[in-house]
Write a protein that binds this DNA or RNA. Structure first.
Length: 500
RNA sequence: GACCCGUUAGUCAAGUGGUUAAGACACCAGCCUUUCACGCUGGUAUCGUGGGUUCAAAUCCCGCACGGGUCACCA
């Protein structure tokens, strides 16, 4: 790509947990780094002290790890040349302040003593006049006396970057092509240091990306309009900016807007997918196809294959709508291709973690029995289940089958089935079981032959007897999940109910 | 309101001037199966719209419409 060694970064702010959008951004940076044999950096952008959440960073790391995304440098893997990796720590070291001072000295930045109320009022007035909200530069070029006077009132200044007039900021975006903004349309001089002494995002990223030798910045398209501001800083400091790549946003198909943490109808967080029993391989694969696609028709790719075929020039521009059904399909594909033993282990793990009610209630089952039950259940349901949580639900149903209440009226009131036929099937099978038949499949077939009942007439009653539902997978395999006594008991119950 | 950006089927999408406009999800139909599911086969688009340019346009240009992103002492 470049003669320089590729260095990319994923830089979350720990104000929330890893959601789909974060994951997408992390994933493309990861693919980029691995494809070009570069370095992946994890940087924590925690300059918003008010909004940081306690476990935000830990959650980000944990879920990234689960997804199969790792990094070469970060808070836990510091490279002395670039550490530290948290902006709060970098700020303490004066990294940002040094450059703020430089801009101040060059007259490219200035102090602003406006209060938040004044600024809010200004914006409100502009809105009322149908103007674009912007900072009007009221503190630009003020004298030292005026600053001192404000200081005497106890006001703490912010520091703003001063835009040159009518200056174009442009760049060639890997995903978007050539993009250009004029300095007059950027909302006026913007804050680079808050009154609490913390740098703002648009300033800190520039300093960090530069001082960490980041060569390529891959981030969400919502950052496009931040980019000219950042380029302005690069120029002011005499630095070269990295290559940008703005990844298409992920949209909620319901709201037709950027996926928001507040959208309740879509699972937002990677941790939710994990606890519902989505496989990390499937999530990785799926997210990689949100905003990008390889040449050809294939859609199922392992992580290593994706690293190999990843081509940043194939990033799309249009936003991607999040399609839950397609994810479910993809997850099902992965489930079908995985061994029963592997799936059993993963399901056991889900139960142990107990992140859902369904998983928790299985914890009361002795481990050996549980494992056996899970294995048998997967054997039956591997072909029709989308996620492991469904397996967990089935396991519970099968475990509790004798306590469950089945609605036999489903067949009693159904005109398609003669009561006498149903009874013939049930009693026929019951007798076979009592006489020691072990091949359940064979036994069912024999009952069919003996009674002359076939198809739905044969299986519908059995499905109902053993699962309480009229459609079920291979019924002889489900019979095998239960003990023979349970099987007989279930048949007997239904017979009694129909005769009553 | 201003500035940027996007627009191929319900969804993800391939496609870079000449294709029968790939493929996948979902949906529908059929086949397989003594049920269900899996699987298999088939079906569904005048490429937002109006104008250009060209022998030829989904592909290039312009207008319009629609959609989105951003305009914070959030990142």
């Amino acid at each position: 790509m470049d003669d320089k060694k590729v260095r990319v970064r994923y830089a979350p702010s720990p104000t929330g947990f890893l959601h789909i959008g974060n994951a997408q951004s992390a994933l493309f940076n990861y693919l980029f780094a691995r494809h070009f044999n570069g370095t992946m950096v994890l940087r924590i952008e925690d300059t918003d002290t008010k909004r940081n959440v306690k476990d935000g960073e830990a959650s980000q790391r944990e879920n990234l790890h689960w997804l199969g995304i790792d990094w070469d440098e970060g808070p836990n893997k510091p490279n002395p040349k670039y550490a530290p990796y948290r902006q709060s720590e970098r700020n303490k070291q004066g990294i940002y302040h040094k450059y703020i001072q430089e801009l101040l000295d060059k007259g490219l930045a200035y102090k602003d003593y406006s209060t938040e109320e004044e600024l809010a009022e200004m914006r409100e007035r502009q809105r009322a006049n149908n103007e674009a909200p912007h900072y009007d530069g009221r503190w630009y070029g003020k004298s030292e006396e005026e600053q001192k006077a404000a200081e005497a009132k106890g006001l703490k200044p912010t520091i703003r970057f001063h835009f040159p007039k009518n200056h174009d900021y442009e760049w060639d975006d890997i995903a978007r092509g050539h993009v250009s903004f004029n300095s007059d349309n950027l909302g006026g001089d913007f804050i680079i240091e808050k009154s609490d002494g913390m740098p703002t995002y648009n300033f800190a990223v520039v300093v960090d990306d530069h001082s960490m030798d980041i060569t390529h910045v891959l981030r969400g398209a919502d950052h496009i309009s931040n980019t000219p501001k950042q380029i302005a800083i690069y120029e002011a400091l005499g630095w070269e900016h990295p290559t940008f790549c703005h990844i298409p946003l992920i949209f909620n198909p319901k709201t037709r807007k950027k996926l928001s943490k507040r959208d309740k109808d879509t699972l937002q967080f990677i941790s939710e997918y994990k606890k519902h029993g989505y496989l990390h391989e499937a999530i990785f694969n799926f997210i990689a196809f949100l905003g990008w696609s390889p040449v050809g028709e294939r859609e199922i790719y392992s992580k290593d294959e994706l690293i190999k075929v990843y081509d940043p020039n194939r990033m799309s521009k249009a936003p991607a709508y999040f399609d839950q059904k397609k994810l479910d399909w993809m997850n099902a594909q992965y489930i079908k291709s995985m061994s029963v033993d592997e799936l059993t282990d993963r399901t056991m793990e889900l139960v142990k973690e107990g992140e859902t009610e369904e998983a928790q209630r299985l914890q009361s089952i002795p481990e050996d029995q549980l494992k056996d039950l899970i294995k048998k259940t997967i054997h039956v349901h591997q072909r029709d289940v989308n996620k492991l949580l469904e397996v967990i639900e089935y396991v519970w149903d099968y475990y509790n089958v004798l306590n469950a209440h089945f609605n036999y009226d489903l067949i009693k009131d159904n005109e398609d089935f003669a009561n006498s036929d149903v009874l013939a099937v049930l009693t026929g099978l019951k007798e076979k079981l009592e006489n020691g038949a072990d091949d359940y499949n064979q036994a069912i077939k024999e009952v069919g032959k003996a009674t002359g009942i076939k198809g739905r007439g044969l299986y519908f009653p059995l499905n109902l007897a053993f699962t309480g539902s009229t459609s079920a997978p291979q019924i002889y395999e489900i019979m095998d999940i239960y003990s023979r006594d349970t099987d007989i008991e279930l048949l007997k119950r239904m017979i009694d109910a129909l005769q009553a």
